[in-house]
Every structure is written in structure tokens, then in C-alpha cells.
Design a protein around this nucleic acid. Structure first.
Lengths: 375, 375
DNA sequence: TTGAAAGCGCTAACAA
DNA sequence: TTGTTAGCGCTTTCAA
């Protein structure tokens, strides 16, 4: 029925497949009646090049399996008709969409944006396209988004952290999609994790502070509910404190949203106490910068009066004055590694192994000896 | 052939449609031989609910067109079998993918990330999913990415700025996809633009500086090649200078990549001249922050010795010390407006009109009177 | 309201 | 190597 291979070997602009609309069996009529402006299909290319649609498909997907002559004819037709193949039809027929879905908590945190950019760049290099969804740290919302990604037929899903509703995991389980988790260490969940030790790095921060003689150390964490990274960082600080025999003072452990404003507020909260800390470990760099701004506006010297440590190592932290002591998070590396692992898996069915990156403490100028005369 | 409507009205877990694999006509065999674990299809739901696939489709897309009784049966089957409909098949059949493509120059600029996040959030609220691609300001790369988005069958495309290869515009023209351009004013190109006046706001910056008595004004622009926003900002500064009868000194107009490091380098370049400017207009906030860091490290007072103006109004600029004078760019508003316009167009075929937002100058503490004793 | 069935534009199994 | 053709899982027309 498809009027492929209509004889003439030349390339004619025969676009639109049906000679007569009338005498086709009943059922739906052709949607685009004017066969003129309609986008060319593989059938049109086949007709123009005088080959079958199968050959067109081969030229597109595996050119070497077609004789140079036919290949050339098909390529000419593609160029002349401005053919763009339908990825949708391709996905349906091959059950591969060449599309990867990602659910990120936010894009307003440079560190996630950077990771995602690296992820996308690597995917694009391999012909994959990224579907993005941002959950705003809302688990319910997230499950729905995941469902939509799965509906779209993504070949794989990238998730941040292990902290997701059971329903989300179910959804993934029931789909054919591959999963990769970023920003986490391999845990109970049997999924490949590409991350680093959030807690361990936080513990190293405390080592550093303890070595400087600090004893009253505060933790301004991010919101830990539904955020295993924030939780791990806080836990790492606690662990470090205990390790060094330092007090874990409940009032000095606070949680703030990741914003400059909240960083300032958090600092104010800590310093309006009768017994302010001599050092503050922050859940991320944004919080740390906020804290520093508030200190500056109060005339409190950093690190003279108080040491402040960030987490993430945003590009700005090395340039600001004073430069921020922080934990260097391998965000781009994780993004790239995840993309590569996914593509390899999808291509050769290579197993995706977990990868743990190193997240070193970068000591700069916001940490110094504990001020004398304060406990 | 499809064993839909197999009699029993109850919901049975009859997953997989073919009773016997043997006596089907030749052609491709079933891909997933084990009909067991395969994902349920509309046919399975239909069979389980004792209705036709058409009814299943109706329940999913327009529940009110189905009788309560059948609707309920279908919904039960959907829940019990954990059915997730194939968006791919849906897109092919309906030629609507409920998917929107975006090509952004970078994600490492918080302002784009914020805009994109708002765009995605609004799209998600209407059931659309976002396909993202980042061009890294590379036009060739960009055309390829656009092509891939179009292949994926996106219903619409969001582009940043009007500065794109002719081939990109062709591609869009030939596709059925709707386009919306962000960050630009309606121009020669006949496409809806949702943006603000980059040049006008830059001109307002010069007004402000001129009023403060500055006469040697420098412009540290972003890279203008292939970036109409950067170009417009630079042009706005030039226009403002001429308007006020101030000199446009070529050596004081430099271009830098949008990074803190380049901002520092640019400042150094300007201040290593025998005749440094008394004010610097920066192409964006990142450049401005870099300039301020360099000034601080050289002991040059801001705004005492030099005034510095940013562009974008990133959240950090209001908190840093001194707080940055900058242009407030309506990034989220543009993202949201674009999403809404697209969805409305796709839903009701509403025409997409161009929208021009206001981008006011926010005067803070990095601008002050021109220092006396300097030209 | 509901069902039957033709397509949507590809891919891939099979035959030639 | 090439062509034929069934089928991917939906939507939608038409008829009932």
C-alpha cells in the first residue's frame, strides 16, 4: 500500500503517500489532507530515492550496511526534502527513545546546575537528549514527575540521592528504565550510585577545626527532611565532634534553607545566643556566604572572631574575600560519569558500577585558630 | 486480532495479548517472549476491564465521555495492573508529544538556571515535560541540538535570544513546532519574544553614573559574538555615553567571558592602564563580583575609588558587602510567561504575543560620586 | 456511549 | 544487500 519504490530511480519530490483519498477502506481519514506541506516521512524518502523504507532506515541507523550507491541516493533525498526522522515513531518501533530523564531537587543551586550541565553535555555527545524535571525538594511532586518521565519512555533515569518515596522506586522497578543515583554512596537500595562521602567530608571539616583549637562548633545544616545529603553532612559533623571529644550542643545545630538570606538569619540566630560558637560548619557555600555577609555587617571578623566553613566549592568561593574554606564536591565529574555509565549500559549492556569520588577539604581563609578568651 | 474484550467483565491479570506464538502469520515475532513481566498496554487494561481500547483511551484523556460504570472498571484495572501509558505511542498517534524543548546557552549562569526552572515548573503544572539542551554559546552545536529536539517531536521550542544560525531557523520553520524566544525584544524575525530591553537598561545605568559625575566610564561586556544580549548591553552603554556627551574610549570597552576569574582579570586590565576609569559597567553580576574582588584585593575602594555596576540582580548581590548596584532582570517572570504562552497556544491555539518586561536599575552601594581629583 | 479498526512513521524479522 | 511486511501502543474516525 505504501507507494514506496514507485519505479523512477531519480529523486522526485513525491511527498505524501496516497494517490486518492476516496477509495481507502473506512477508518480514519488522513490527518493532513494537503499532502503538500506535510513533513516528509521515510516513505517519501524511499519513494524519492527509489528504495524501500527499510533501506532508508538502514542508511539512517547503520549506513555501512547499505551499498554506496543506494546510500548516496537516500542521503541526497534526505537533504533535498529536508527530512527529519520521527524520533517518536523510532522510539515506538525500537523501544528505545534515546532520551534520559533526570529529576533534580533544584536548579537554583549552582552545584546541581553544573552537575546537570555536565550530564547533558556528555549525553548529547552520544546522541541522547535530556528530559529535566525539578522537584523543589517535594517528594510527592517528585513521584508524579518521575511517572511522567517514565511515560515519555526514557531509556534511563537519573536521581539525586537515595531519599525518595517508596512509590518512586516502585515506578522505576516496574518500568524497563535503568536508574543511576547521583550524590550518594551505595546503600541499602540496590542501585548504582555515583557520588562521594558527604558525611566523611563533613567529618574532615571538624578535624580541621579541632586542630585549630575550636571547641564550640556549630552546624548550620540545610533542611534535612527528605534530603540525605544534608542529613549526611550534619551526621558527619556530629561524628567528628564526638570523635574529638567535643560537645554536641543542640542549640548550635540549626537547619536553614539553602539561601543567602537564610545563611544570614542563621548566623544571627547563632550569634544572638549568650554563648556563640567559635566556628560554624555550613551545609553549603550559599549558607556560608550568607553567614559571612551577616558577620561582616555586624563587624564580626572572619576568621578572627569566628571561623566559617562551606560545602560545595562554588567557583565564587575561591575569589571572594576572604576566600572560603570549603569541601570540593565533584559535581561535573559525577554528571559526566553518570552519563557515560548510562550510555555504556544502554549501548553494550555494560553493568553500571557504583563510583565514589573524593571530596577534599579546601582550606582557604575563612578558618583560623579559635579566638583566645572564648571557651 | 488483539484479544481485547475477551468476555469476562471482571478484572483478571491477563497481561500479554497473544495466546499462542506459533500460528501467527510470518513477520516479526513478539519482542518480549515472556508475556509475563511485560508492561501492561491499553489492550491489557481493556481486556481486564472488559472494554475496548478506545474506551480505555477515553477514560485516560476525557473521562467524562465515558459512563461512570465503565470508567470505574477501567480505573480499577489501571490501578491494579500498575498501568503507565506509553507517551511515545500516544505522541505518534496524536502528533502531540506534550514535550517542550529548550536550548539554553549555559546552566552555569544562575540567571538562566532560574529562568529555566520557572519555565519547567510552569510547564510541569500543565502536564508538559521539558527537554533541555545546552549549547555553551556554540552556534554549530546548537543547530544539531535543535534538530535532535525536533526529532524528538517537541510541541514547541524555547530559544534564548534572536542570534541563531539561519539553519536553526529553517529547521524550526520546517517543523510544526511553535517557537518562543526569551531574553529578546521583538525584532526582524517574526517570532514571539518574551524579554526586556537589554540596551535600554544599560543606558539607564549610564544615566545613573553620569548623574553621579562620572566621565571616564568603562564597559566590561560579556563576549558579544553570537550573543545579542551582551551586544545590546554594550550598545546601550555606548548610546548612554553619547547621549550625555561622554567619551566612548575604545580601550575602556573590553569583553570577558562570564566568570569571576575573568571579572578579576578585566578589572586588572582596566586598572593597569595609566588612566583607569572611575566607573565600570559590567555585562553581568558575575563579572561585577569578580571586579569587586579584584578591587578589594588591590585595596581599591568601591565605590570610593571606583563605582561598579552589575547586571542580572542575582540573589547574592543584595546581601554582599557592599551590596551591588545592578539591573534587575525578570528571569523567572520570563520563564513562567513563556511556559504559559506556549501551553495556551498548544491548548486553545491562542496566539502568542510578544511581552516586554521592565528591567529596572537597582541602586545599591557599589556606586557613588565620581572621585574628586580624577578626570 | 461504545466498539472496530485504520493509521501514526518507524524498525526489524524474514525471505529473496 | 535489499525489499516486504508485521507490529510497536496508542488515538480517532466511523458506525452502531
Amino acid at each position: 500500500m505504501t507507494e514506496v519504490n514507485s519505479g523512477r530511480g531519480g529523486i522526485s519530490a513525491l511527498v505524501g503517500k496516497y494517490r486518492d483519498e476516496a477509495d481507502r477502506p473506512h477508518g480514519r481519514r488522513r490527518r493532513h489532507v494537503s499532502a503538500r506541506s506535510a513533513k516528509p516521512t521515510a516513505g517519501d524518502i524511499a519513494a524519492a530515492a527509489g528504495v524501500s523504507t527499510a533501506t532508508v532506515s538502514r542508511v539512517l541507523n547503520n549506513p555501512m550496511s547499505v551499498s554506496p550507491e543506494l546510500r548516496e541516493r537516500v542521503e541526497r533525498a534526505v537533504g533535498e526534502l529536508g527530512y527529519v526522522r520521527s524520533g517518536v515513531a523510532r522510539a515506538l518501533a525500537s523501544s528505545r527513545s534515546f532520551t534520559i530523564g533526570a529529576v533534580v531537587p533544584t536548579l537554583n543551586n549552582a552545584i546541581f546546575a553544573a552537575s546537570l550541565a555536565a550530564f547533558e553535555e556528555q549525553l548529547a555527545a552520544d546522541g541522547y537528549t535530556l528530559l529535566v524535571t525539578v522537584s523543589n525538594y517535594n517528594p510527592t511532586h517528585e513521584t508524579g514527575q518521575l511517572r511522567r518521565l517514565l511515560e515519555r519512555g526514557v531509556d534511563a533515569i537519573m536521581l539525586i540521592g537515595l531519599d525518595h518515596p517508596e512509590e518512586s522506586w516502585q515506578l522505576i522497578e516496574h518500568s524497563q528504565a535503568t536508574v543511576v543515583v547521583l550524590w550518594a554512596l551505595p546503600g541499602v537500595r540496590k542501585v548504582p550510585c555515583i557520588g562521594f562521602d558527604n558525611a566523611g567530608a563533613a567529618e574532615a571539616v571538624v578535624d580541621h577545626l579541632a586542630a585549630l583549637g575550636h571547641r564550640r562548633i556549630a552546624m548550620m545544616a540545610g533542611i534535612t527532611a527528605g534530603n540525605d545529603r544534608a542529613r549526611a553532612r550534619r551526621a558527619g559533623v556530629e561524628r567528628g565532634l564526638r570523635k574529638h571529644g567535643l560537645p554536641v550542643i543542640p542549640g548550635l545545630f540549626i537547619e536553614k534553607r539553602y539561601s543567602h538570606a537564610d545563611g544570614r538569619a542563621g548566623f544571627a540566630e547563632l550569634f544572638d545566643r549568650p554563648d556563640p560558637p567559635t566556628a560554624i560548619v555550613c551545609g553549603n557555600d550559599v549558607l556560608a556566604m550568607g553567614a559571612i555577609f551577616e558577620a561582616q555587617s555586624r563587624g564580626i571578623a572572619v576568621p578572627g572572631d569566628v571561623s566559617i566553613v562551606g560545602y560545595d566549592n562554588l567557583s565564587i568561593t575561591q575569589h571572594m574575600m576572604p576566600a572560603l574554606t570549603t569541601v570540593s564536591v565533584p559535581s561535573e565529574a559525577m554528571g559526566r560519569a553518570a552519563a557515560r555509565a548510562i550510555v555504556e549500559h544502554l549501548t553494550d549492556n555494560a553493568e553500571i558500577g557504583s563510583i565514589t569520588f573524593h571530596a577534599p577539604l579546601v582550606v582557604r581563609n575563612t578558618t583560623g585558630p579559635a579566638p583566645a578568651g572564648r571557651p
